[in-house]
Simulated assay, not measured.
Amino acid sequence: MEYSGKTYKYFREAKNFSVTQASEGIVSPQFLRKYESATCDISMTNFFQLLARINVTLTEFLNIYNEDIFDIWFVKCEKALDGIGRHDSIEADRLLDEWRELAEKNPDIRFTLMLKCLEHLYYKRFHQTESLCYKEVTNYLREVETWGNFEFFIATYTDFPLSTEELLMVANKILKMKEKYRNSGHIVYDFLVHVGSHFFNLGDLEKSKYILESYFSIFHKKDQIFFISFEIYARFYLGLIEMHEYNIPENKSCLTIISTLNMFDTYTGYANFMNMAYQKERAKIMAKNQ
C-alpha cells in the first residue's frame, strides 16, 4: 500500500508512541523512519506486528488510509506552507513536486485541486502573476454539499473563485450557524476575515464591514493567542473602512498594527503588506480631498 507509512505515522503519533517504542523488537528505528517517509517498502508480517504494537486494528488503519489519506497530506501541506518564506522558492518547488506526484497517483480530485491551489500561491508569491484558470476549483466548490477545512482553504487561497453572491451566502451560513463554527479550526476563521478583506478590495465597504464586525461579535477569542493574527487582520481592515467612512487619510489603529508587526522578524512581511495597503487607501482619500 503506497504511502501506508504516512498513515502509520499518523496513528503512531496519535497513540503517543515514539519511533523507538513502536519499532522495538520488530524493525530498527531507522527502518521505521524510512517506512513512514515512504522511502522503503515493508513486509506484511512486520506491518501487522507494528499495527499490534500501537494497538490499531487493520480495519481502523484501512478506514483512515482509504478515506482520510488526503486529510493527512493536507495537514502536512498546511504546516509546510507556514514554514515557507516569501523568498524560499527552493522549498516551494519541492512542495509543488511532491503534490504533482500525489495528484498523479491518487484518484481523489482533492489532490489535483490542492495542486492547483499551490500553483496559484507559487506564481502569485514568486512571480506576482496569476497562474491558471480555476474552473475545476469553482465547479467543485459549487457542487460539494458540505464544506470542511479543505474547501475553506482552497476558496481562500485561490482568491475566491466564486461570485460575490455565492461568497456572501457561504459567509452568512457560517455566521448563522455560529454554534457549529465557533469552536472550529483556524481555517474557517481565516476564510471569514479574508472574505471581509476581499469585499473591501472589491469596493463593497458595506459588506466588508458587516462580515468583519460579525466575526468579532461571534468568534472573538480574546483569551486565545493562537487566533490573534485573524483579529489583527480584521482590525486592520476595519481601520481602512473607517478611513473611507470619515474621509480621513489616517488611522491610528492601522499605524499601530503596522509598527507593532514590524518589530518582529516573523511578521515583517505582513507589516510591509499592510503598509502598502494602508498607503494605497491613504492616497485615494488624499486625491479625493484635493
Rank of each mutant, 00 (worst) to 15 (best):
F191H: 08
Q21E: 15
E281T: 15
G196Y: 08
L240R: 00
Q49N: 14
D265Y: 07
I285H: 09
H194F: 06
G185L: 12
F74A: 01
L118I: 06
D159I: 09
T7N: 05
N183L: 11
K288D: 08
K178H: 11
N139L: 05
D204P: 06
H194V: 02
H244F: 04
G185T: 07
S253W: 03
E36C: 02
F61R: 04
D41H: 12
H186Y: 14
L50H: 04
T20H: 05
D265A: 13
K116C: 06
D93L: 07
E104S: 08
K284E: 13
T39G: 01
N139T: 13
G185A: 09
F273W: 11
H87Y: 15
D265V: 09
I187Q: 11
D108R: 07
T129G: 01
K79S: 13
F191T: 10
Y233H: 15
H194G: 02
F70D: 03
L62F: 14
F227H: 15
E281C: 11
R142C: 13
A234Y: 09
I109A: 10
E166F: 13
L32V: 01
N275P: 00
F70K: 06
S217A: 09
A287K: 10
L32D: 00
E143R: 14
H186V: 08
H194E: 08
G239V: 00
Y246S: 15
W147N: 06
I42S: 04
L141C: 12
Y157W: 14
